[in-house]
Amino acid sequence: MNHTDKNIVQYKPLPGDFAIWVFIFAELLVFGILFISYAFTRKYNLELFNHHQQFLDRETGAINTVLLITSSYFVVRAVDAIKKNMSQQSARWLALGLLCGAAFVVFKILEFNEKFSEGITLSTNIFYMFYLCLTGFHFMHVLLGMVILAFILVKTHRRKYNADDHDGVETGASYWHMVDLVWIILFPLVYIIR
């Protein structure tokens, strides 16, 4: 009798290069610690946090959330397309994803610009210190993610990937989703809940 065979479950590997996953785990750890520090610092500076949070720009925050989610979605479609060997469609989805990322960057720069022109800096108070650090650090990740996306976009466009060989696309996609995931927590934490 051979009942072991039946019990073998076929697991998928993590999508993309394993290296990016170790990197993602490490990055999530960094953000996790930042989020937890924020939450507990707020606990001990309740009035200050609640007061200044009102002045954050929730509208751009929300628009930016939708942009990142949508961008992530486009990148999912790009991976789907390359799995079906449709590299040009895939490149188009990637381009759309990149476009959303760029829009995010523009809105974010406008938002930062407004805060800076009000004379707000890291030293203004502990709330703004966290606000600028969290959003600023995330912002740099958006930029890095976009560089990676642009890189795989070019390669996809040149038909360097196909149904059998698209590790690169999945690698970039995984990182980009991580950037999205972090924002999904950051936005309500810093802009909304009180």
């Binding site: 998928k12 999508p15 990148v75 999912v76 999945e170 991580m178 995931l181 927590i185």
Partner: peptide, 23 residues
């Protein structure tokens, strides 16, 4: 809000990042 963060995060991880069906 936090429940919606959980739902959103869950789907991004499982479906967008593609962890569903991995180890």
């Amino acid at each position: 809000v936090l429940a919606s963060v959980l739902i959103k995060g869950h789907h991004i991880i499982a479906d967008f990042m593609g962890l569903r069906g991995t180890e």
